[in-house]
Amino acid sequence: MSKFKPLLFVLVLILSVSAALVGCSSQPQPNQDANQQQPAGPSGSATAVGSSALQPLAEKAAEMYMAKNPKGKVQVQGGGSGTGLTQVASGACDIGNSDVFAAEKLTADQAGTLVDHKVCVVGFATVANPKVKVDNLTGQQLIDIFTGKITNWKDVGGDDQKIVILNRPSSSGTRATFKKYALNGAEEAAGQALTEESSGTIKKALADTPGSISYLALSYVDSTVKSLKYNGIEATTDNITSGKYPIWSYEHMYTKGEAAGTVAKDFIDYMMGAEFKSIITQMGYIPNSAMTVSRDK
């Protein structure tokens, strides 16, 4: 009679452990069926974790990649750039998606082990509530607004209305990019701005709040918000690729080492390849190959 008890315990234990494992990220399984390898591509699986800005594009790419190469499984997860970089550096996932260069989040030692793949470019626009009458802001005006020196739209040629700044959290990649390229790194006024967690919420709050100003990735900009010119230049794909408009950043996919021959590398190559280029444009991103200018930090 008593011999059943341990048996049962083992059974339940196995059940619950396996149930718990389903939620965990899958580990790479390289060379699972190496002898059956076909020229179509490597087999196994890869996990990409990180940036929520890159996630929709990466998911689309994963879907198309797996249709083409059924032996390679690619799983895409969000979690934020910091999570992606930490996990790829520690080996917990194969690809770390990030809005920023690894050196900005990780220590030099950790960042040194990672290889950067710039899969595409994202442009950002300064946006305002649609009722705001201003069309253009110079770089200096933008800095003065975000540092709290200018607090009324009338000082930049608009109505007599208070300027309401909507920020992303200070850890956000979008905010870091905007601060770096639009504000020249100027420190924003503390405690003045409203902060919203996601670009979606920013867009909603912007449309609802009179006199508000913020910044959004171009893929989020539509008619519910007003896109402002920066130094007289419109935030368009053409102006970004030609280098006239400076507020843009790379979307990175980091691997630990070169990762040659793995599904992860093959997937990244696919994403940067000619076949996927039209999808990148279609989804509001800019293919890296279209850029006439480049940056390395």
Partner: peptide
């Protein structure tokens, strides 16, 4: 407007790297 403990955690958790003081 103001902020609380839970908001700052959810806003910054994913975007900061593990092991940093932040």
């Amino acid at each position: 407007s103001t902020i609380n403990l839970t908001s700052i955690i959810t806003m910054d958790m994913g975007n900061t790297a593990m092991g940093t003081p932040w």
